[in-house]
Nucleic acid binder design. Structure first.
Lengths: 196, 196
DNA sequence: AGAAACGATACATAATTATATATAGAGACA
DNA sequence: TGTCTCTATATATAATTATGTATCGTTTCT
């Protein structure tokens, strides 16, 4: 029965995380304490109605009261709209990641000399850096960069570098001709019925 | 700042009264005490999130969390189904709506030229026109057509058109999926065809 | 390795909600 | 008038939220 409350709180949390806002930042904007938010989000305490409203308002959300009957229709609207503009926030850490990646490439060049694959990676990074990436996409980039880092000292670096280049290329392609037939979700458009 | 909370509580109260439910009756269905509800409704005390949810659930309402951006659209939906004056019923008006929609698409084609999205919308409209839509579904279609109308003159029509196409597609998918997944019993152990 | 940010948790304490029960005042109805 | 039902209050008490401050364990970046 506490069901619905949990769902709402979980939604709020997902959206907070998706927009790259920390509990602390949110706590300031909402006028609550970080520990308070933590406890609410982790279900250890139930928020008062206006505490919850304060949280959601600080996330550009609103609580609305609707007849059960047209909840599905409304979820449709929300879902459809959730994709495009979600990424106004969170400008910071990505740049740093790219910077790190470019440093890495530079180091690899010094170790192994220039290679076509490295040039390609360099190019692709410059491209990707300028694009608005979804969380999922950024996640992929991150993993690839980590792999690059990890195998930097490896004896068999060359094939791995090539594979990474291919992966980045694939990502760029998928972004470049942005899906006319299949409008893929830029970020999770779940309605949370399966996970938790 | 407590404005929103008051508004929600006031809405709940209005709806309770409009449906002729007494505080006492509501208190039993919601599992709260009458005095509790009285204090909440008169603003003398602020409900916890789940107390409020219990109240609203007992009134066949639901709290949903939506981006501020599309609150107006949602209020439209809610209002449309709340006012008995606007009722659609009757077989005819739907056809007219679709006809209007198709004229709209035609006009858009003349203004902006053909586009994949417009083609898709055209297709989807033809499909939806032939299907029996529930009131809710028709409501959604109506809302989408209205949006198409409103943004017809907009400079940035393209992304909106795409979004509308996606919405219609989603609706079609939900219809197409729902029908065949029914086991289709050879002998009818039907449940009455109300779609609700 | 060290610094920084993040989320979870641990208190102590103040403030408020929630429950139970009872009753008062207003309005409708016979 | 007497009786209903409904909402608003009045307690007293138990339970929970909310604040402040501080710390712990992780992860991430330098």
């Amino acid at each position: 029965m506490a069901y619905q409350r949990e769902s709402l709180v979980a939604q709020a949390r997902e959206i907070r995380e998706a927009s790259g806002v920390s509990q602390r930042a949110l706590s300031e904007r909402a006028g609550l304490t970080q520990s308070h938010i933590s406890q609410i989000e982790s279900g250890k305490m139930e928020p008062g109605l206006s505490s919850f409203i304060d949280m959601t308002r600080a996330l550009d959300l609103e609580l609305v009261l609707v007849p059960k009957k047209l909840v599905p229709a409304i979820l449709n609207l929300v879902k459809a709209q959730a994709t495009p503009s979600m990424h106004i926030h969170a400008g910071q850490p990505n740049d740093k990641r790219f910077a790190r990646a470019e440093r890495l490439v530079k180091q690899l060049r010094q170790i192994y000399g220039s290679s076509a694959d490295l040039d390609r990676i360099d190019d692709l990074l410059r491209f990707l850096r300028r694009v608005n990436l979804s969380d999922q996409e950024m996640q992929l980039v991150r993993e690839l960069i980590d792999r690059l880092d990890h195998h930097q000292a490896s004896a068999q670096a060359a094939p791995i570098v090539r594979e990474i280049a291919q992966n980045l290329q694939r990502l760029r392609n998928s972004i470049a001709h942005a899906a006319p037939s299949e409008p893929r979700p830029a970020y999770s458009l779940d309605d949370g019925d399966a996970d938790a």
